[in-house]
Design a protein around this nucleic acid. Structure first.
Length: 220
DNA sequence: AAAACGGGGGC
DNA sequence: GCCCCAGTTTT
């Protein structure tokens, strides 16, 4: 019979501190220029970090601002996007997005969740990332790693990332929101793997984890 | 809520 | 060749 562990803000903080002590950045948030944050975050969708960085550098070198991206040739952009997943959808959406922002917002990135969500190619994950890294806002950006790990820890029992976002808003102390995504991303890549069994024996927060208590790892 | 979308890189 | 991967959109 597993020990029932109530999830509390204090318990969440303990785990977050364990992750912060382990991973790069320590849970701090590095801000960036809004245009670059927006575009690189779209590029990062379903794409590994190394490829995101490489592709973003190429795109920024060719399209340094909103106006140049709005005026981009689609074929040319598609070539630069090689290495980013779903590039054939992202290319046209990036141009459409930049065009809208140029016409309706003077080329600025809106500091508003609903305005961001209304843009083509922008969902909850990307919109919250932009609020956090471009505007230093307190938001929770739930990607697949965060969704998976929050469920494994036993913090939430949710089916969708949006449900996870809402549930975490309740149990996670607000000062930890913005930096949480980076920590969970690194943890998910290094230890708390998606497919194969997670590497629980090397996990810095195993003592607090529901999944880590199970005698035999099973998929979840 | 589940399926479609769709390709580069690592093994 | 096979499988995985910082989601978004459509059914």
């Amino acid at each position: 019979m597993a020990i029932e562990t109530m999830v509390t803000p204090g318990g969440v903080r303990a785990v977050m501190e364990g992750l912060a002590a382990t991973y790069r950045g320590r849970g701090s948030v590095e801000l960036g220029e809004p245009y670059r944050v927006l575009v690189s975050t779209v590029i990062s969708q379903r794409t590994r970090e190394e490829q995101t960085t490489a592709v973003s550098q190429r795109v920024f070198a060719r399209y340094p601002d909103m106006a140049s991206l709005a005026a981009a040739d689609e074929k040319e952009l598609l070539v630069l996007l090689a290495g980013s997943e779903y590039r054939e959808a992202k290319g046209p959406r990036l141009i459409a997005m930049a065009t809208i922002l140029l016409e309706k917002y003077g080329g600025r990135v809106p500091d508003d969740i609903d305005a961001l969500l209304a843009l083509p190619g922008i969902g909850r994950k990307t919109a919250n990332c932009v609020l956090i890294y471009a505007f230093n806002r307190e938001a929770i950006c739930v990607d697949t790693h965060m969704h998976k790990i929050a469920n494994r820890l036993g913090w939430v029992t949710t089916k969708t990332p949006e449900q996870t976002e809402k549930a975490l808003e309740v149990v996670m102390p607000r000062d930890l929101w913005a930096g949480s995504n980076r920590l969970f991303l690194q943890h998910g890549r290094a230890i708390c793997l998606s497919g194969a069994p997670p590497l629980c024996s090397r996990c810095p927060v195993r003592p607090w984890c529901a999944y880590g208590q199970e005698p035999t790892a099973r998929k979840r």
